[in-house]
Amino acid sequence: SSCPGKSSWPHLVGVGGSVAKAIIERQNPNVKAVILEEGTPVTKDFRCNRVRIWVNKRGLVVSPPRIG
């Protein structure tokens, strides 16, 4: 992607959502990480300053967080 800084975090799958949020925002200060339960409807727009963290009912990351 053409967004500045780190853009994906595949190693965070299985980690707690709040831990993942802290790591992502520390590694790329340009983004705001948002924790969402899988299945939550979201907009389809692409934004360089957003990372969606998809978690299951136990709050664990279920897919690699990435910019968008």
Rank of each mutant, 00 (worst) to 15 (best):
S1D: 12
S1G: 14
S1W: 05
S1F: 13
S1M: 15
S2E: 11
S2M: 09
S2F: 15
S2C: 14
S2K: 11
C3S: 14
C3N: 15
C3A: 14
C3F: 15
C3V: 15
C3I: 15
P4Q: 12
P4N: 11
P4W: 10
P4H: 08
P4D: 14
G5P: 15
G5Y: 09
G5R: 15
G5F: 13
G5W: 12
G5M: 15
K6A: 15
K6M: 15
K6P: 14
S7G: 15
S7Y: 10
S7F: 11
S7N: 12
S8M: 14
S8N: 14
S8V: 15
S8H: 12
S8E: 14
S8K: 14
W9S: 02
W9L: 06
W9T: 03
W9A: 03
W9N: 04
W9P: 01
P10R: 05
P10H: 02
P10I: 05
P10C: 03
P10Y: 05
P10T: 08
H11V: 05
H11Q: 15
H11R: 10
H11C: 13
H11K: 10
H11I: 04
L12R: 01
L12H: 01
L12D: 03
L12I: 00
L12E: 04
L12A: 02
L12G: 01
L12V: 06
V13M: 05
V13F: 03
V13Y: 00
V13A: 02
V13H: 04
G14M: 02
G14C: 03
G14K: 02
G14Y: 03
G14W: 03
G14N: 04
G14D: 00
V15D: 04
V15W: 08
V15N: 04
V15L: 14
G16F: 10
G16Y: 14
G16A: 15
G16N: 10
G16S: 13
G16D: 14
G17T: 01
G17L: 01
G17I: 00
G17Y: 02
S18A: 14
S18D: 13
S18K: 08
S18E: 14
S18N: 10
S18L: 12
V19L: 10
V19N: 08
V19T: 13
A20L: 02
A20G: 00
A20Q: 04
A20N: 00
A20I: 00
A20W: 00
K21F: 02
A22F: 09
A22K: 13
A22N: 13
A22V: 13
I23N: 05
I23A: 06
I23H: 08
I23G: 03
I23R: 03
I23Q: 04
I24K: 00
I24N: 00
I24Y: 00
I24T: 04
E25A: 02
E25T: 03
E25G: 01
E25D: 00
R26S: 09
R26G: 13
R26V: 07
R26Y: 08
R26K: 14
Q27I: 06
Q27K: 08
N28R: 06
N28I: 07
N28S: 07
N28H: 05
P29E: 08
P29R: 09
P29L: 05
N30F: 11
N30A: 14
N30L: 12
V31W: 06
V31G: 03
K32M: 10
K32Y: 06
K32P: 02
K32V: 11
K32A: 05
K32Q: 10
A33G: 11
A33Q: 00
A33H: 01
A33S: 04
A33N: 03
A33W: 01
V34C: 08
V34G: 01
V34D: 14
V34A: 07
I35S: 00
I35N: 11
I35F: 08
L36F: 08
L36G: 03
L36I: 13
L36A: 05
L36C: 11
L36S: 05
E37R: 11
E37I: 10
E37D: 08
E38D: 07
E38F: 04
E38H: 09
E38G: 03
E38T: 08
E38M: 09
G39R: 03
G39L: 03
G39H: 05
G39V: 01
G39Y: 02
G39S: 04
G39E: 03
T40K: 08
T40F: 04
T40A: 09
T40D: 06
T40Y: 07
P41F: 08
P41L: 09
P41H: 09
P41G: 07
P41E: 12
V42C: 08
V42A: 12
V42S: 08
V42G: 04
V42K: 05
V42R: 05
T43G: 11
T43D: 12
T43V: 11
T43C: 07
K44A: 11
K44L: 07
K44T: 12
D45M: 06
D45I: 06
D45S: 08
D45C: 05
F46V: 11
F46S: 10
F46D: 10
F46G: 09
F46P: 07
F46R: 08
R47P: 14
R47M: 13
C48M: 12
C48L: 09
C48E: 14
C48R: 12
C48I: 09
C48W: 10
N49Q: 06
N49C: 05
N49V: 02
N49I: 01
R50S: 13
R50A: 13
V51E: 01
V51C: 07
V51Q: 04
V51K: 00
V51P: 02
R52F: 12
R52D: 08
R52Q: 11
R52C: 12
R52T: 12
I53M: 03
I53E: 02
I53P: 01
I53F: 03
I53W: 02
I53A: 02
I53R: 00
I53N: 02
I53H: 07
I53C: 03
W54D: 05
W54Q: 05
W54S: 04
W54T: 05
W54E: 07
V55G: 01
V55Q: 01
V55A: 01
V55F: 01
V55N: 03
V55Y: 00
N56W: 00
N56G: 03
N56R: 01
N56M: 03
N56I: 00
N56L: 01
K57T: 08
K57S: 14
K57F: 04
K57A: 08
K57D: 14
R58D: 13
R58K: 10
R58T: 11
R58M: 12
G59E: 06
G59K: 01
G59C: 06
G59W: 02
L60K: 08
L60W: 06
L60H: 06
L60S: 08
L60T: 10
V61T: 05
V61Q: 03
V61C: 09
V62R: 03
V62Y: 00
V62M: 09
S63A: 11
S63R: 12
S63V: 11
S63L: 10
P64I: 08
P64N: 03
P64R: 02
P64S: 06
P64A: 09
P65S: 00
P65W: 01
P65L: 03
P65E: 00
P65K: 01
P65M: 05
P65V: 00
R66G: 07
R66V: 13
R66N: 07
I67R: 13
I67P: 04
I67G: 05
G68D: 12
G68T: 08
G68I: 06
G68C: 09
G68A: 08
